[in-house]
């Protein structure tokens, strides 16, 4: 299998991961598209340097989350990306409207958290163990546990209010 084939296979297998990170760190669809492409680009750029010391998913989460930080912005701006057949933005088009609404509500809840907390809750919801979350985030295990407990409380109080 060529490098290109292996990479495209990898992206296809983990397209959900990239989509979830880009949707949690952007508000506009165009920004989400920009971020999705930037993550894929950064993964490709560092694909050769991935030496398999970390788990593949750990490497991907780290690159995706780190890239998202560089793309944070405050206000609407003009599109920057070239159109890639609209394939990225509309990746979730075919789901039913009710689920789509609930996912939007879920994203809105998480987007109210700080940039670090958003990353931590994403990793938690992805089913990552505290050890792996600590490795990706660069925090101690105790710190991760404390922060996640606080995030849960924050989310709970937000949900109760709504």
């Amino acid at each position: 299998m060529s490098k290109e084939e292996a990479f495209t296979q990898l992206i296809k297998e983990h397209q959900g991961l990239i989509y979830k990170v880009s949707s949690l760190y952007t508000e506009q669809q165009q920004d989400q598209n920009d971020l999705y492409q930037e993550i894929v680009y950064q993964l490709w750029k560092s694909y050769d340097s991935f030496r398999g010391e970390a788990k593949m998913s750990t490497w991907m989460y780290r690159v995706a989350l780190n890239t998202a930080i560089g793309q944070l912005k405050k206000k609407k701006r003009a599109p920057n990306t070239v159109s890639i057949d609209q394939g990225v933005v509309h990746i979730m088009d075919e789901i039913d409207a009710d689920l789509d609404e609930r996912i939007k509500a879920l994203n809105a809840q998480i987007q109210q958290l700080s940039i670090l907390d958003r990353g931590l809750i994403l990793l938690l919801l992805e089913g990552k163990k505290y050890e792996e979350i600590a490795e990706i985030a660069g925090l101690s295990l105790t710190n991760v546990a404390t922060r996640i407990s606080r995030i849960k409380q924050k989310l709970k109080s937000k949900m109760t209010k709504n």
Binding site: T8, D34, Q37, V40, I84, V88
Partner: peptide, 24 residues
């Protein structure tokens, strides 16, 4: 749902690896 999506083709992915767009 995301795992089942088939919209991302090899061509689209490889286009994304070329820095054709201007990042921020």
């Amino acid at each position: 749902e995301l795992a089942d999506q088939k919209k991302l083709t090899n061509d689209i992915i490889m286009k994304m690896t070329q820095e054709k767009y201007v990042n921020k």
